[in-house]
């Protein structure tokens, strides 16, 4: 694990780590897994990391870095050829059977022409709570109402899902995860095709869910928003390049390794930036999404959080 220590900017207060009794403590534990495709090519090699409760963790890597393979492994579609994955201390399939993991799919993976209404999709989150006939009880309807209320989509509940905007679509699937009531939520690229306002609304919601004690694992290539809301980062390219608290892990050096020259890199310093001999400099890293901006003296740069919602 190569992570250069920087000044810690994000206060990580000791959140209530004691979940209510009877609730399994959310955690994801990946122990030295290798996942191969049927043609023998290993998409993930010797990857290990560990995440606990009350965490938002970003999974950052280029396209084709094996991020989605890792997610598919966590969802039990692929089985590691070596190593193992534990979710809340249980094998993946057991954890899934108990409904411990919710999944928010990437927009491209959803068939938006499917004849289902917004409320139908959110109700799907309750299937694990129903008997095998999947007849919704009053408690299920209530959970759906609450989830829709919380993401602000109650007015759209009778719309067919294809009639929504990009941000609204995302919120519907977040509502489904809420209604499901899972302690662990995997989100696949939640910010693609979403406007700035919805992005900050989603981030607020994720924070609130973290404060409830949940664990959220977010696959993203939106670098700028990572320091904004993630306490942990896993930098990934076929294997775990670095992982740990955002402040110490999400560094220029680690990102350069993870992205291998695929990032736009702008640096301002010296006489371009200052009239005096100030050593501090501005670094902008972007893959054409929201950029990551660092400012400070060499190797002492801190993340700069732009005003959220004020981008327009």
């Amino acid at each position: 694990m190569k992570s250069r220590v920087l000044e810690i900017h994000s206060e990580t207060p000791a959140r209530s780590l004691s979940a209510p009794s009877g609730r399994l403590m959310p955690s994801i534990q990946v122990n030295n897994i290798t996942v191969s495709y049927t043609n023998g090519v290993a998409a993930v090699r010797n990857a290990s990391f560990k995440l606990g409760a009350s965490t938002i963790c970003a999974l950052v890597g280029v396209n084709g870095s094996g991020k989605s393979t890792l997610f598919k492994t966590l969802m039990g579609f692929l089985t590691p050829s070596s190593g193992d994955v534990r979710i809340a201390g249980l094998p993946v399939n057991t954890a899934l059977k108990r409904g411990l993991v919710a999944y928010v799919p990437q927009s491209e993976d959803v068939d938006w022409n499917f004849p289902v209404l917004v409320e139908d999709v959110v109700m799907m989150g309750r299937y694990g709570h129903m008997s095998f006939l999947r007849m919704p009880a009053k408690s299920d309807r209530q959970a759906v109402d609450e989830a829709l209320e919380r993401v602000g989509m109650s007015d759209y509940r009778k719309r067919q899902i294809g009639e929504l905007s990009g941000g609204q679509k995302k919120r519907v699937f977040l509502a489904r995860a809420l209604a499901q009531g899972s302690e662990i939520i995997l989100l696949d690229e939640p910010f693609t095709g979403v406007d700035v306002k919805t992005e900050s609304a989603i981030i607020d919601l994720l924070r609130a869910m973290r404060d409830d004690g949940r664990l959220m694992f977010v696959s993203t290539h939106n670098l700028g928003s990572v320091p904004d809301f993630c306490d942990q980062v896993v930098l990934f390219n076929k294997t775990v390049l670095a992982y740990g608290p955002t402040a110490t892990t999400f560094t220029e050096a680690n990102l350069a390794e993870a992205f291998g020259g695929l990032l736009r890199h702008v640096r301002l310093g010296g006489s371009d930036l200052h009239d005096d001999a100030d050593q501090r400099r501005v670094t902008v890293l972007t893959d054409d999404e929201r950029p990551l901006v660092l400012y400070g003296e060499r190797d002492q740069e801190k993340h700069i959080k732009p005003d959220r919602g004020g981008a327009s």
């Binding site: 919710a102 999944y103 993976d109 899972s182």
Partner: peptide, 22 residues
Amino acid sequence: GLKWKDLMLAFFDDSHARSVGL
């Protein structure tokens, strides 16, 4: 008649189907 909703879920979103234990 017994399985139409499970089938719908598996066809609509197989990741979510897994997450509810199907």
